[in-house]
């Protein structure tokens, strides 16, 4: 936890000077969220970083992990880091996806109120800041698409009435990579709705030791002493990132070249969509901000290409792992862009 997380925070404390105050504020907001998450979960700094980036970029996260790897804690802490007092939305909701789940269990349902003689909308779990959609591949496509539509549109329509969702609405979905029997794997267009798909690796030995040593405290956490953030701060941070982090033309072409490379790869049935590139931009900007920069660099692209793109590629039959495909597609444009920085512009 120390090495990576602390370097991030150290740098965040001294953001790139030149970026305006908005960016400094944004960095501070992100740092506070990350601190609260780091308090709750040990040894998951990379995941925390990605989740924070996703939140800043307004995207959703799909975690591919094994049971008991701390994802509930993560989502709960994420919700708890938001000062949602006075907000119509609850901070954190969790839905365990099962085969018999119905769309209305997600979106909410209109119930007849005999007192007023009319139907009243009872909001479902999507009306929250943070929604943990556990084992999303265990439910029917009907329910999946109800959730995914809510994720994409940030609104829910029940009985011809449209209910807007929280602008900060973040879905942390999980799926178990093993035990696929009786599951409904998400098709590629649906996976495209997730900004990141994060494969959670087992945590380091020291971190695991620490988890075991302090499990009791974590089971019943007292109220954190770390400061929370307000929805307004998060929205302002998003705005600052979008406006103030520079995304150079070289990197734009690097990104496009990466996508084009995936489309010509023999191992790929369907390469990256243009939409995925558009979605990648705020994520790259958010990571640059988290690293204390006011410009996107090749480093951001190298770090985020896997989580951003691996799940959006439809592989040709017989090819199992998209990671090397993305890495190969990125290698050429990335190296060319990196080298070009030493040449005359």
């Amino acid at each position: 936890m120390e090495q990576d997380g602390s370097t991030i925070d150290d740098r965040t404390a001294t953001p790139a000077g030149h970026g305006g105050a908005g960016l400094e504020q944004a960095a501070d907001t992100a740092r506070r969220v990350a601190a609260r998450l780091g308090e709750a979960i040990v040894g998951r700094d990379e995941v925390i970083d990605l989740v924070v980036i996703a939140w800043l970029a307004g995207g959703h996260v799909l975690l591919e992990d094994f049971p008991g790897s701390g994802k509930t804690m993560l989502a709960r802490a994420l919700g708890a880091s938001l000062d949602a007092d006075g907000s119509p939305f609850s901070a954190f909701r969790r839905v365990q996806f099962t085969p018999d789940l119905l769309p209305s269990d997600i979106t909410g349902v209109s119930v007849f109120d005999p007192e007023h003689g009319r139907f009243e909308f009872v909001p479902g779990p999507v009306f929250a800041h943070v929604l943990l959609a556990d084992e999303i591949n265990r439910t029917s496509p009907k329910v999946q698409s109800a959730l995914l539509e809510a994720m994409a549109e940030r609104q829910v329509t029940v009985d011809n009435v449209t209910h807007p969702l929280d602008p900060l609405f973040l879905v942390v979905a999980t799926q178990n990579p093993l035990g696929l029997a009786g599951t409904f794997p998400l098709p590629a267009p649906q996976l495209d709705r997730f900004l990141f798909k994060i494969r959670m690796e087992p945590i380091a030995r020291e971190a695991e030791l620490e988890v075991v040593a302090s499990y009791r405290q974590r089971l019943h956490p007292g109220p954190s002493t770390l400061p929370r953030i307000t929805p307004g701060e998060l929205l302002a941070a998003r705005d600052a990132v979008e406006r103030e982090v520079c995304f150079a033309p070289e990197l734009r072409s690097c990104l496009v070249d990466l996508a084009r490379a995936t489309r010509t790869d023999a191992r790929v049935a369907q390469g990256l969509s243009t939409r995925s590139l558009v979605q990648a931009v705020p994520a790259l900007q958010a990571r640059a901000m988290r690293r204390g920069r006011d410009f996107v660099s090749t480093d951001d692209l190298a770090a985020l290409a896997g989580p951003l793109f691996a799940h959006r590629i439809v592989l040709a039959p017989g090819v199992a792992d998209p990671a090397p495909v993305v890495a190969d597609a990125l290698a050429g444009p990335l190296e060319a862009t990196t080298r070009a920085t030493l040449h005359r512009g």
Binding site: A16, H18, C246, A248, E250, L251, R293, D294, F295, V296, S297, T341, G345
Partner: peptide
């Protein structure tokens, strides 16, 4: 490196 990248990618 940071200064170089800021000049190159950040236009500073």
């Amino acid at each position: 490196t940071a200064a170089h990248l800021a000049a190159r990618f950040g236009g500073r």
